[in-house]
Design a protein around this nucleic acid. Structure first.
Lengths: 368, 368
DNA sequence: TTTTCAAAAGAAATCGATTTCTTTTTGGAG
DNA sequence: CTCCAAAAAGAAATCGATTTCTTTTGAAAA
């Protein structure tokens, strides 16, 4: 900041010998009538004097900042950048800005960021896949802040400013599993990082459901879980490495499987790498599936089948929804969506299965 | 925002029958002395009444926002997320926030974002690899805003608040080229997207330099350039696809080459994909190199050698540098770095070459 | 020419925190 | 017991834009 003497509406008013009120009316497109020639003069002088409105002053009076806080696990997790880009584009279009926070799903970080956003008076917060965000939100919610929360659980914490958009992760998992079943696989292993987060639990649950519905099951030894915690810097490398290591474990514990479902495409990449290194053919010996459609998946060898969603458009929709809610609350007393839990369906682009032939060929006689 | 009646220092003052000044002194840790028991009472009451400082009011008076604007081509370009994460972490640590903008290297978008940041009174702007940012900056600079500009050119536009950190892209290109030369390659093709941007021009220049120094050259037909413009949504997919298409062109125009340098690892991935699809062996028939070390590069087959920098730590260093500049300017009248062009060396982690054996094996008799 | 009402403009309060300038306390020295 | 400096507290201005409440202007109606 440190502006010695930025032009203010007072300077313009003085220059033109009109009142600051008039200047403000012109510059903020108030509905209050101003004589055309005065309006012109103000506009011209503002330009000439290089006037730049002061957002803080405006926010202070208007009690709105046009800033939307975005809380995600980490921008360095390749799942999020396109979502954020979608959000950014819609926000920009509507005159809003992003306040981006990577909270690592960490209680303390989250709490700190929420506090920050509270002080910054963001107009709303969008939280994506942050399980325990509510614990950090007591303050925000009690201050009447708007929260759009994308998650997988029906959280009991509901007020008329909280919108829980519930994503059906079980569906994603079901789609993946059914895909493999339809290809003839019966023995499927699952590779995951720690089950601390709901989205992972839900994936496992969805897989189990589907298997059971088909008269199959997921025995303990086929669910392989990596325990350590993530580093922010190298999130992808971590996941790939884990994929590789989990495959090792798998080959010991349950080599009889014919297909492997990985937590995401990045882990799948590592899994495939390791399988090939060990001399196995993919998908001849093992089929591998992922989630989230990483950019490399159509170009890896073999290519990776995946369950995907349109990240960019999800970002757009979420931001659009949020801004609608903000405006609703500002034109207060207007219709309000039935609050509480909202299904993703209809609001967000549907999830799709992307079948890439080279990973998971149909097989009549599955087996290594 | 829309807080009905957030607690203010006036409320606390009223409650305790002291003056707002006193409350402010306690809450903002002013150096002005306050009796210990009063301090305690204020702190307690603030907590009890759920006081949250209003950043806008504070900024308005203090003329600083603790917000740093970050302008990058796009957050959905995988080169940037880790840089941004590094910036975010250092910013958070120092009590600053990010205002993130993906400007697509587009004049209009950039201008709009700069205007926004000007209104928001960001304490500084960090721009990364945005060639023509100066054109959009006249306003910002004349308002005395701090700009930290990471780029490759010695821009003539210099004031005492502009810090041009010059990255030696030629060096990166030299490292890549020398690596291939050292492996015995003599005929090298180069795959690029449009040469609109300086970093790409510099890469080509660096490659030519090195070849010439070795008595070789880059004939016109071995420099393959893709012309279309990017879509924000699918940046990576675009680059991979281009890699594939450019390889096609290459196979027609200069099949005699033994090695290919791609603009980045993502394009390299597409190039390799296409080569393999066409039945060529990589690296037996063609060696392929990239830049920027994408997360998939160590796990693709073959793995991809690359010239890399530590993105996360670059982000940290850049933000650290910027915050130092902000503080310097605020404790005004203090020592100031010699402004103008600053070399990246020393400030940023050095660039390294990552040799991954399976892409580019040493060869005694190069050739298809 | 006077009345009346809408249009146009201004004065001043407001948003919430900080800070300068006073004023009041307080404790120790004389 | 006085005096004085330091400590502590308060009053009020300030940051810049908005807006309510007046006041003034102007033009049409009577």
């Amino acid at each position: 900041m440190v502006k010695k003497g930025s032009t203010t509406i007072y300077d313009i008013a003085a220059e033109l010998k009109v009142s600051p009120a008039t200047v403000s009316r012109v510059l903020s497109r108030s509905s209050h009538p101003v004589k055309e020639e005065v309006r012109e003069a103000v506009l011209q002088t503002a330009k000439k004097m290089n006037y730049i409105p002061n957002a803080q002053a405006r926010s202070l009076k208007l009690k709105k900042t046009s800033v939307v806080g975005v809380v995600i696990p980490s921008i360095s997790n390749p799942f999020y950048p396109s979502i954020v880009r979608g959000m950014e584009d819609t926000a920009t279009q509507e005159g809003y800005f992003l306040h981006l926070c990577s909270c690592d799903r960490n209680q303390d970080r989250t709490a700190h960021y929420i506090q920050t956003m509270l002080e910054q008076n963001v107009d709303a917060i969008i939280s994506i896949y942050n399980d325990n965000i509510f614990a950090s939100l007591s303050g925000y919610v009690s201050h009447g802040g708007i929260l759009v929360n994308l998650n997988t659980t029906t959280d009991p914490y509901v007020s008329d400013r909280i919108y829980n958009i519930q994503v059906d992760k079980l569906l994603e998992a079901r789609m993946a599993t059914e895909h493999l079943l339809s290809l003839g696989h019966k023995k499927i292993a699952v590779l995951m990082s720690k089950l601390d987060y709901q989205i992972r639990l839900d994936k496992v649950a969805g897989i189990c459901q589907t298997l059971e519905a088909a008269g199959l099951e997921l025995p303990e030894e086929r669910l392989l879980i990596y325990g350590r915690d993530c580093q922010a810097r190298e999130l992808c490398r971590e996941d790939t490495e884990r994929g590789a290591q989990l495959v090792d474990a798998m080959l010991n514990r349950c080599p009889e499987v014919t297909a492997i479902i990985c937590m995401n495409d990045i882990m799948a990449l590592g899994a495939i790498f390791e399988l090939k290194k060990k001399g196995y053919r993919v998908p001849a010996d093992y089929s591998v599936m992922g989630f989230d459609d990483s950019f490399s998946s159509p170009y890896s060898s073999p290519t990776i089948s995946t369950v995907a969603l349109d990240k960019y458009s999800w970002g757009q929709s979420l931001m659009g929804f949020t801004i609608e809610r903000i405006r609703e609350a500002q034109d207060k007393g207007l219709k309000r969506l039935p609050t509480g839990v909202i299904s993703e369906q209809g609001l967000l682009e549907p999830i799709t299965l992307i079948h890439r032939k080279s990973t998971d060929v149909p097989r009549t006689s599955p087996g290594a």
